[in-house]
Simulated assay, not measured.
Amino acid sequence: MTTMTPQRPVPGERGEEVPCPRDEPIFTALAAHWAAAGRLVPGTTDPEWDTLTGRSTDGR
């Protein structure tokens, strides 16, 4: 299964790298189900909203 959260280490309080926690399998499965059904998944961008608000979905 894939996860919706990037799994890159993040800086800790003392500058050390702290691994990101993994998403729970139930969330990962639910997010995949929603995405397959064309629904918006929390934590992802909404291209329709970005279009309506004039934001670019490619980071510009």
Rank of each mutant, 00 (worst) to 15 (best):
T2C: 09
T3P: 09
T3E: 14
T3F: 09
M4E: 07
T5S: 07
P6D: 12
Q7N: 15
Q7D: 14
R8E: 08
R8G: 01
P9Q: 02
P9W: 01
V10F: 02
V10L: 08
P11V: 00
P11S: 02
G12A: 05
G12E: 07
G12Q: 07
G12C: 06
E13K: 14
E13T: 05
E13V: 02
E13G: 11
E13C: 03
R14C: 06
R14M: 09
G15W: 09
G15D: 09
G15T: 04
E16G: 05
E17R: 10
E17I: 00
V18G: 07
C20I: 00
C20W: 00
C20G: 11
P21G: 11
P21R: 15
P21A: 14
P21Q: 15
P21F: 12
R22C: 04
R22S: 09
R22Y: 06
R22K: 14
D23K: 10
E24F: 02
E24D: 09
P25W: 07
P25C: 07
I26F: 15
I26W: 15
I26D: 15
I26Y: 15
F27S: 10
F27L: 09
F27G: 08
T28V: 11
T28Q: 15
T28I: 08
A29D: 12
A29V: 03
L30M: 15
L30I: 07
L30T: 14
A32C: 07
W34E: 12
W34K: 14
A36I: 01
A36E: 13
A36L: 06
A37S: 09
A37E: 11
G38N: 12
R39L: 13
R39D: 11
V41A: 04
P42C: 06
P42V: 03
P42R: 13
G43H: 04
G43K: 05
G43F: 02
T44N: 04
T44K: 11
T45H: 10
T45C: 09
T45K: 13
T45E: 12
T45N: 12
D46M: 02
D46T: 00
D46C: 07
P47I: 00
E48I: 04
W49P: 00
W49D: 05
W49K: 14
W49T: 04
D50P: 01
D50Q: 15
D50I: 00
T51V: 01
T51G: 08
T51S: 10
T51A: 13
T51D: 11
L52E: 14
L52W: 08
T53V: 07
T53S: 13
G54P: 13
G54M: 06
G54V: 03
R55Q: 12
R55H: 12
S56V: 00
T57Q: 06
T57K: 07
T57H: 08
T57D: 06
D58P: 05
D58W: 11
D58R: 14
D58M: 08
D58N: 13
D58G: 10
R60D: 10
R60M: 01
R60T: 08
R60C: 01
